[in-house]
Design a binder for these strands. Structure first.
Lengths: 217, 217
DNA sequence: TGGTCGCCGGGAAAATTTCCCGGTTCGCGC
DNA sequence: GCGCGAACCGGGAAATTTTCCCGGCGACCA
């Protein structure tokens, strides 16, 4: 019998997983957790074989959860189950010690099979995700390093919401120079829209972005 | 017997919901869909009582789905089930004709109960969400709520990084119409730059933004 | 000393955005 | 039914912005 811990902050989603898993004769959900702390406590107090972990949790990430669960409990394996399919997440997860990575778009059968694989000590990776990882590993060099320091700085200020005139004022430059720099940035980073440019900047940690939790404005 | 349509682009999550629902004696999942188009087709071809709709779909949003489902099938009621708890989403959903709004953090019992309520023609709203909506309604009208559904949808796609031509293609509209919508959005929301517009959208939970962790180092 | 590079900014061409228009559909009150 | 307003679609022209190209400056290096 494979004993399983579910970590996902959505109650309903968790309940659904439980039904899926409990329907299998050789596995059962031994614990549920909505937060990293709860999961940590469960891993300490309960005998477990596999932890099924969501990455996008409120507060700390599933990566952190993975690390903490593994640090506490020696026999356990972690299977990440998330909506994200970015290569970055995948490498982060495996680096943190996960044994498997599935997206929520996978077949329910893949989840069941994946749990068995992971419990047996084998690695698991969604086919759709593997493709992306392979591509990223080949081509992806850090885009931001092509920017000159000045361009980098202008992008940082623009991405944090300042308007070009304000940036110019702040940097004691001409309005026009800022626009020229921004133009160069757009071209070097090959972005179609300013939206995608900002997303790129955010992905590289250039700016911190507001989260839905800070609603009032 | 309440006949239900599930619309969610995550296969595994959908399967979980199905288990939850099929365990009830008086309801059953009559159709599943991963895309708005599939849901539309299902609503046309199948006799249905309630549609359980996720808001964050790849491509078009659940708002759009809600409108299209309701337009096609007269007897059906829509229950939105999503991770988002921002007031903007809630008002958009009800404006599109939804009868209920639950977050995934709700109890599984609330989903079951909510389906029964909605099927009976009563409105349903998560307690946690109601709080936020009430606050937003009191202190100031939510910025995003001044947008029309169409503008909302265009903003959502643009903010998630799609280029205007791609959006036009996806929505079967003219390139020009998208630009006009975006222009209206910029004006209504009074943003100086597209960067600040995207930040605003992110703050209201309109899009999920990439985090620094998604880049391989 | 000549070459390259980053940086600054002006001016004109090119592209985009904004603005305004007419048309359609839908829902609502009368 | 009928008028009314609102949302929606999209074309065309004006207005604005972005891009492109330019010259000039200082720093670094072979």
């Amino acid at each position: 019998m494979i004993r399983i811990l579910l970590l996902d902050d959505h109650n309903i989603v968790r309940s659904g997983y439980r039904r899926l898993i409990d329907a299998e004769p050789d596995m059962c959900v031994a614990a549920e957790a909505a937060t990293v702390d709860d999961a940590y406590a469960a891993a300490r107090d309960t005998a477990l074989d596999v932890a099924v972990v969501d990455l996008s949790l409120r507060g700390a990430s599933g990566i952190e959860a993975t690390r903490r669960i593994l640090a506490r409990s020696s026999g356990i394996r972690v299977l990440v189950l998330t909506m994200h399919d970015s290569p970055g997440f995948v490498t982060q997860a495996f680096r943190a010690g996960a044994m498997g990575y599935l997206t929520k778009s996978s077949d329910p059968g893949e989840l069941i099979g994946g749990i068995r694989q992971v419990a047996a000590g084998r690695r698991v990776l969604s086919a759709d995700v593997a493709q992306g990882v392979a591509n990223a590993a080949l081509e992806e060099d850090d885009l931001l390093s092509r920017l000159t320091p000045r361009e980098f700085e202008v992008l940082r200020m623009a991405a944090s919401g300042e308007s070009p005139p304000r940036i110019a004022l702040h940097m004691h430059l001409s309005h026009k120079t800022i626009l020229n720099h921004l133009s160069a940035v757009r071209q070097k980073l090959d972005t179609e829209t300013d939206f995608s440019l900002l997303r790129l900047a955010a992905r590289h940690g250039l700016v911190e972005l507001p989260t839905p939790s800070s609603v009032p404005c």
